[in-house]
Simulated scan of single mutants.
Amino acid sequence: MNPTKVDRNHLLRLTDLPNVGPACEKDLRLIGIRVPAHLRGRDAYDMYAQLCMRTGVMHDPCVIDVFLSVLRFMQGEAPRPWWDFSKERKATLAKEAPLSLW
């Protein structure tokens, strides 16, 4: 759903969450998330790894941004577009990347 249309008091389906449409809903269901409440206590990077392992495909890293957006929303933050989280994701992944020997 478009973040500007999200109603925090109406979170029955995954598609009621900011930035979650049918494709993302399918991805979330693949990793065992059926309703918004199942997101509590989850980690976006672990969710992404689970999705990649479950499907056998490396998904676009922007999926992490969507996961970050819904997790933060569920923690009480205002709904924001997924791309607001791209800089954070890139910085986090850069810190975790193994050092090159070159």
Rank of each mutant, 00 (worst) to 15 (best):
L68I: 07
L17A: 07
P61V: 13
N2M: 12
L12Q: 15
A97P: 01
T15A: 08
G21C: 05
R54E: 15
A97W: 04
D43R: 12
S86M: 04
R42D: 08
M58H: 14
R89F: 00
Y48G: 02
W83I: 03
D43L: 11
L68Q: 09
E96A: 11
Y48D: 04
D60G: 06
F73H: 02
A44K: 03
V66L: 04
L17I: 09
F67N: 11
V66A: 01
R89P: 01
T15C: 09
Q50V: 03
L17V: 08
R80C: 00
T55R: 10
C62A: 13
E88L: 14
C52V: 06
M1N: 09
L99G: 06
M58V: 15
D43K: 11
P18T: 01
P61S: 09
C52F: 06
A91T: 07
S100A: 09
R8I: 09
P22I: 13
L101H: 13
D16Y: 04
M53H: 15
A94K: 02
D46Q: 15
R80P: 00
T55S: 05
P18M: 03
L30K: 07
Y45A: 07
A49G: 08
V6Y: 00
G56A: 06
K95M: 03
A91D: 09
I31Y: 02
M53V: 14
R54T: 14
K87S: 14
K26T: 12
A37P: 00
F67S: 12
A78V: 14
H38D: 15
R72Y: 13
G41T: 07
D46A: 15
T4S: 13
G56T: 06
F85G: 01
G32P: 09
I33R: 04
P61I: 12
K5C: 11
L11D: 04
T15W: 04
V6N: 02
Q50A: 10
Q75P: 03
P18V: 01
H38T: 08
M74A: 09
I33K: 04
E96M: 09
V6D: 01
R40P: 00
N2A: 11
G41I: 10
R80M: 04
A97H: 10
N19V: 02
H59N: 08
I64Q: 01
W102T: 08
L17C: 07
K5I: 07
K87T: 15
P36T: 06
G32N: 11
E88F: 13
V70P: 00
N2T: 11
D60I: 05
P81G: 05
L12Y: 14
P98S: 08
L71N: 12
K5T: 13
K95V: 00
A91N: 02
Y45I: 07
R80N: 01
P22D: 14
L39Q: 04
V63E: 06
V63I: 13
L51M: 14
L101W: 10
S86T: 12
W102Y: 10
L99Q: 08
M1P: 09
P22A: 15
R13V: 02
G21P: 01
R89H: 00
M53D: 15
H59L: 09
M1W: 02
L39C: 13
M1S: 11
S86A: 12
I64H: 00
P18S: 02
D27E: 15
